[in-house]
Amino acid sequence: MDWQAIGLSLRLAILTTAILLIVGMPIAYWLTYSPRRWRFLVEAVVALPLVLPPTVLGFYVLLAIGPRSPVGAIYRVLTSGGLLPFSFPGLLVASVLYSLPFTVQPMAGAFAAVDRKLVEASWCLGVSRLATFRRIVVPLAVPGIVTGAILSFAHTMGEFGVVLMVGGNIAGVTRTVSISIYDQVQALDYTAAAETSLFLLALSFSVLALTYSLQRRIWAVWPTS
């Protein structure tokens, strides 16, 4: 089994999830509480990775982070000559974009499900919007936030098209577990492919089983969400 690839995938998935939790929360907050007028546009943009072929997304990301793009140029200055495409950080950027809807949608759903009156009650008690969000909305939306994190993690573990486009296939740098399986099949090494696939299947199943068991317990504590 390609332990190096598995390790890389785990690292990528954990970092992607962490970044998404930080980036996704304000977006989900905005989607929940902003006026209706322009919301549909942001919703559509956030949901785009769900329907766009990974190769298309990967292609645009590749262009966007290339050395001649503004993002690539800034990165180059910051890291004194570093390149984003075909590197782990570049892969991370692509993964974050690719899994964005998987974090934002469950989160926004959970935020919206928090009784509006609780939020208003907090405002009337003199607590600011931000503090209300942190102290009332987030704790009550924990199940949705956990779901978002788990889905992003699992989704990143299995991503293929985007990785291939943006990261290529560099062992130890960008060769994730799904690419490793593809390589093994290409090389007619079915035994190795079967082992790695089984590992991924078992991991995905355990993560999902854990999520569902965990959520039941959370819901038992906080019945309103």
């Binding site: 009156k117 609780l118 009650a121 009337c124 607590v127 704790p139 906080w222 019945p223 309103t224």
Partner: peptide
């Protein structure tokens, strides 16, 4: 003025106690 600055105590019909 934002509700935070008006400082009205609002008692909701279903009380809106923070359940957690």
């Amino acid at each position: 003025l934002a509700p935070q600055l008006r400082r009205t105590g609002f008692l909701f019909q279903e009380y809106a106690l923070f359940p957690h």
